[in-house]
Design a protein around this nucleic acid. Structure first.
Length: 757
DNA sequence: CCCGTCGTTATTTTT
DNA sequence: TAACGACGGG
């Protein structure tokens, strides 16, 4: 087959895209607006570099944030240039995992590490600092993760900016020590530790510079400090390396500040990569122009942006619709009706996506769609891999891979019950840690630096405990018998895995064997009988998902990585091409597009979420922008007057984002449109308006500033402020208990009474 | 050691 | 409202 000519794939690009593809010689920052064809640019660039610039494909590294994006990028690059199959197109985290396994010794991790999730981390913090409650431990875990996103160690001076509590550094340090004893890593380590290795070992940095000549980063606006440092260290800019660095991002789509993403990375890129050229991609190929106008009307309220104007290539299209509904049930019904009616006219379900701010909101749609027989797929929140039975099996697999894994050990040693309770577990773990410490001490001064594989092994510690108690005569305690049973099973499974010689045996055989031999299958099957759960089916699904991997240590590592490094992965067994409506959080839509999009729950407190202001509020607004720009043909926005929240029905306000956008006359308004949104009052749409006629309203007469009152739930308080917002009379009340709340007195007759002094 | 009941509490967003 | 943790009984 003849090599495709560069002109063939360049000819379909616009001028800016072409410029970005053929650019060379300096760092490059591509500011790519939504739908401007950035994936096409990156993939074409990869093909171009290989075919026209003779860059070896394996020396190209392209980094994305999600596995889905990585997969798509690789597929599209390969279509343009088959040799791109050898290029490294991966997520930041899977690249970090590869790096850590390769330099395991320098990074002080076990080569066979598995990745602890938040839950595992919390357990470990709880063990490292027993004084903490589970809740406190969870809070600490959150802060530790954030610290790692910023590459901060327990002794870093700047740690106070993450968490000012004086106890925190000690908690972090204790956790870190304990984590290292297991040899495993957490999510943050996948980026932070490679950075530390690169900074500590110049020769490794040189190896990387030699190996990767081209580094590209997608979704750069969502990179965090650790990832920035990773990029810096890999490319070796400070050392004058000529590695070609190209990052692609859109500051308007930065939505991960809460987990350490730094918009500064994109805003100050030029300063850290001197000589950077900037290319803007502003032609939008995705959406019709009225949808883009809606998007622009939203994001233009943000102050902190580089500024960019999308030009629509497609036609004007239909007018986006804003719908005001009485309650969340009506919202679900509205969506269902819309989708069903379109389906009757031939629109497939897969054209539709229903977007919401929090995962919990998916429930109303699931219920309604189930009822109306509309097929749907919930993206992301599928906690398949967090289910107890699934975690149990995976923990057993992880333990066999790394028998120092304290968390996995605790989880499975006594499941099903074998008489080895917490006290026994503690003793075994302490013994293993003592053995490891002793070995480490003995090592000092001797030249046997490589750590013994059995050192600190909990499996070995179990066997030792058994050996110490048997042969002494007398009855063997139940706990020791339990450890013996467990050690027997774990030993047998380890031998099975290591004894595999035929290459065509699938890993599913091994996973299945774990389920059977561990007794976990039976244990969970019993639960199915009693509570009618799906555990056996889930275990079977898990076993099936391992069929793609070979039955070996390497295969098992790859399998566990694939699960641990991408939680958004669809549930195994879900067919990807089914004709279903997509239910998805706004965050998860990053990089996706749909013909028809419904963004739901546009209410104050929900979206934007309560207590958002300043930079956080701007991020919420960008999230709205991301949602709008997913739509190709049709866009609907819904807002409810009532919503059930914490089991209580609350009266809701339309989101301030709606007022910001409606003033521009870009939306068609439907439903119970609040007065301030109606034609004629467009100019005054927004918050803090009203005032006129307030004195005449009976409610305003009753609830004046200073009025003392009593609320059923919150107790005694005083009206601090009273005003009309969006045509509704709202009071702000300060309670004696401390908090402040806002109410709509019109709807609080049963809960709110005036008290006379 | 396992099960049930009662009371409390929680909701961002995710690699 | 639902889910989970603490507690107590069997």
């Amino acid at each position: 087959m003849p090599e495709p000519l560069a002109s063939e794939y360049l000819s379909v690009l616009n001028e800016q895209q072409k410029e970005a593809v053929i650019h060379e010689g300096s760092p490059l920052l591509i500011l790519a607006g939504a739908g401007s064809g950035k994936t096409r640019v990156i993939t074409t660039k990869i093909a171009y570099l290989i075919a026209e610039k003779q860059v070896p494909p394996q020396s190209i590294l392209a980094v994305t944030f999600t596995k889905k994006a990585a997969k798509e990028m690789q597929e599209r690059a390969v279509l343009l240039e088959p040799a791109a199959s050898q290029s490294w197109i991966r997520t930041f985290h899977s690249f970090g995992a590869w790096f850590l396994r390769r330099y395991a010794e320098e990074a002080c991790v076990d080569k066979n590490f598995t990745v602890y999730d938040e839950d595992d981390m919390t357990t470990l913090v709880g063990k490292a600092v027993p004084a903490l409650s589970r809740q406190e431990a969870a809070r600490a875990v959150h802060k530790i993760s954030l610290a790692k996103d910023y590459c901060l160690m327990p002794d870093s001076k700047n740690l106070v900016q993450i968490e000012s509590s004086p106890e925190f550094p000690a908690i972090y340090a204790a956790y870190e020590k304990r984590l290292r004893e297991t040899g495993n890593v957490d999510f943050g380590d996948l980026i932070m530790r490679p950075v530390q290795v690169l900074e500590a070992y110049p020769e490794i940095q040189l190896q990387m510079q030699y190996r990767f000549r081209v580094i590209m980063v997608d979704e750069y606006q969502d990179s965090n400090v650790a990832q920035f440092k990773f990029l810096q260290a890999l490319s070796g800019v400070q050392n004058g390396s000529d590695t070609y660095v190209c990052v692609v991002g859109d500051d308007d789509q930065s939505i991960y500040r809460f987990r350490g993403a730094e918009v500064q990375n994109i805003l100050t890129f030029q300063q850290h990569f001197p000589g950077t050229q900037i290319i803007r991609l502003e032609q939008n190929y995705r959406s019709t122009s009225r949808i883009l106008a809606a998007a622009d009307s939203v994001v233009r309220s943000n102050k902190d942006r580089l500024g960019k104007t999308l030009r629509a290539v497609r036609g004007e299209g239909g007018q986006p619709v804003m719908v005001f509904l009485p309650g969340q049930d009506d919202e679900a019904m509205f969506c269902a009706d819309l989708i069903m009616r379109a389906h009757e006219k031939g629109t497939p379900y897969r054209d539709w996506a229903v977007l919401y701010r929090t995962n919990a909101q998916s429930l109303e749609f699931e219920t309604e769609f189930l009822h109306k027989k509309i097929p749907y797929t919930v993206v992301g929140s599928l906690k398949f891999y967090e289910r107890e039975e699934v975690k149990d099996i995976l923990a057993f697999a992880a333990f066999i891979l790394n028998p120092r894994d304290e968390i996995a050990f605790r989880r499975i040693v006594n499941k099903p019950a074998r008489g080895a309770g917490p006290k026994t577990q503690e003793a075994v773990i302490d013994a293993a840690r003592a053995a490891a410490a002793e070995a480490a001490g003995a090592e000092t001064g001797s030249e046997t630096a490589a750590s013994d594989a059995a050192t600190g092994s909990l499996l070995q510690a179990c066997r030792d405990a058994v050996a110490a108690r048997t042969g002494k005569g007398g009855a063997v305690p139940k706990s020791v018998a339990g450890l013996n049973t467990f050690a027997g099973i774990a030993g047998e499974l380890t031998e099975f895995l290591d004894g595999q010689t035929q290459p065509d045996v699938k890993l599913s055989e091994f996973i299945s064997k774990i389920a059977e031999r561990s007794g976990l299958s039976e244990y969970h099957a019993a639960d199915d009988e009693i509570s009618g759960t799906q555990r056996t089916a889930n275990i079977q699904e898990l076993i099936n998902s391992a069929v793609l991997y070979p039955c070996s240590r390497e295969g098992l590592i790859a399998y566990l990585d694939s699960i641990e490094l991408d939680r958004t992965l669809e549930k195994p067994g879900d067919e990807p091409d089914a004709d279903t409506v997509t239910l998805i959080t706004l965050h998860n839509t990053k990089g996706l597009e749909f013909r028809r999009v419904i963004i739901t729950g546009l209410e104050e407190g929900i979206f934007p979420r309560q207590d958002k202001s300043g930079d956080d509020l701007e991020e919420e607004r960008r999230l709205f922008y991301v949602g709008i720009t997913r739509a190709k043909d049709e866009l609907y926005i819904t807002s409810c007057g009532l919503r059930r929240l914490y089991g209580r029905t609350e009266y809701m306000h339309p989101s301030r984002f709606l007022a910001e956008a409606a003033g521009k006359d870009v939306f068609k308004l439907l439903g119970n449109v609040p007065p301030s949104f109606r034609a004629g009052s467009v100019g005054s749409a927004g918050f803090g308006t009203g005032g006129a006629g307030a004195g005449a309203d009976p409610l305003a007469q009753k609830w004046r500033r200073g009025t003392r009152l009593y609320h059923d739930d919150y107790g005694y308080g005083q009206v601090m402020d009273a005003s009309f917002i969006d045509g509704e009379f709202v009071i702000t009340v300060a309670f004696e208990s401390g908090g402040t709340k806002r109410f709509l007195p019109a709807y609080q007759k049963n809960h709110l009474v005036i008290v006379k002094d």
